[in-house]
Design a protein around this nucleic acid. Structure first.
Lengths: 216, 216
DNA sequence: TCCCTTGGAGACTGGCACTATCCAAGCATG
DNA sequence: CATGCTTGGATAGTGCCAGTCTCCAAGGGA
């Protein structure tokens, strides 16, 4: 398959494919001559994954590159490579100054991890981006005056735990380790918009149920 | 409060506040003279909300403006104004061409709404952005070869429904209609990063539980 | 009075994700 | 073999977005 054909099969313009090649999101094809390169099904598959991460998952190109790189890093163990997608969170603008809202957020999150029986070490050491985003979000809620303590967070945490079980089950259904890693990345990132959309639809439904007087 | 003081209290630079004023995210202050304007607590509160929507919720400025405008549109009924935040989804790049993946996604989502007992009219008519995002995401998963049918979607949908109940409860705790609307916007948008972060932390925890051999 | 600050308007910046242009080296057709 | 079209690669440019800079005339305070 030449670049033009890769473009046709994937629906991505050749210009963009060249851009991804330059950015290291896609491995170069096998050169057959000074001006010709050959791509195969694996390139196509990866291109589709990259596109999905960027377009659907809204990952910045740089983050997508890091994720892809991590999934291929043979020096990491399986567990770490499965976590690759977690590193790609476009982490917010560093920690705010240590104000009261942030303080309260820290305590609430610590209490939450405790109540859920999660290992704070894991959260802090390996997955700082998600942890920091969580803190920043809770702090912002506090600053607006919306209580966001353990009691409020707990239902969210429990549901997240359930989702994780279901997600990891899907990952483990993949027969090969490589397949598992790709699945972990794809499912982590691509189910996010699914989850958010469903939540918004659920809001609509529930709100209609409670407030809309005009419906039959 | 003058503009400079508003900036101090909120931690937002005067330049950015001026920008938000220009963009209509913030109402102009009460002019006290040709070169002086007076801002009050309501401006401060709104500025904080706007900042949170943009920085934490990652809403584009234009979307934030629309959300804010909808919350103030007296011609809409309470239910519609509560749904304001839902409109602001930075909806993906239109619907893809009608390929097989998209077709399958449509069917899966329709079946899902049915199984959940949700009203497809509500989802389609009022909340098209979320619906479209959902379709596009499921289609992308399909295209990558990850089955994303009713059975996989159902746990996500059920959890979304639970969250909606909990969220709407929080909204209804607000005493005033205006407060309810602001709460609906704030909680819809600002709990999204909370939810996603928790899911990623849960993945880490669950993955550590299943795969990490090296922990005590 | 004199100077410093203020709010406002428009131009400018930097980052990002592409996209367009150019180029030399094939390949393929007569 | 000549010739014209295509290909992959490198470089420069585009459009958009969120914010920032610069300048200005009009106040306000010492």
């Amino acid at each position: 398959m030449r670049l033009a054909e890769l473009s046709e099969h994937s629906g991505v313009s050749t210009a963009t494919i060249k851009y991804y090649l330059r950015e290291g999101l896609l491995q170069p094809g096998r050169r057959t001559s000074a001006t010709q390169a050959e791509y195969d099904e694996r390139h196509l598959r990866r291109l589709r994954l990259v596109r999905a991460l960027i377009q659907i998952g809204k990952l910045p190109v740089a983050a997508a590159r890091e994720v892809i790189a991590a999934t291929e890093d043979e020096s990491l163990d399986h567990h770490m490579r499965l976590g690759a997608a977690t590193w790609a969170l476009p982490q917010g603008p560093a920690a705010m100054e240590e104000d009261a809202a942030h303080q309260a957020a820290s305590e609430a999150v610590a209490a939450l991890l405790d109540r859920l029986g999660w290992d704070a070490e894991v959260a802090l050491a390996e997955f700082a981006p998600a942890y920091r985003t969580l803190l920043a979000s809770v702090a912002a809620l506090n600053r607006l005056g919306y209580p966001c303590d353990v009691e409020h967070l707990l239902p969210y945490g429990r549901l997240a735990a359930e989702l994780a079980v279901s997600d990891l089950d899907m990952v483990q259904k993949q027969p090969t380790p490589e397949g598992q890693i790709e699945a972990a990345v794809a499912l982590t990132v691509l189910y996010e918009p699914v989850l958010l959309s469903l939540r918004r639809l659920a809001h609509a439904e529930e709100s209609a149920r409670r407030f809309a007087a005009k419906r039959a």
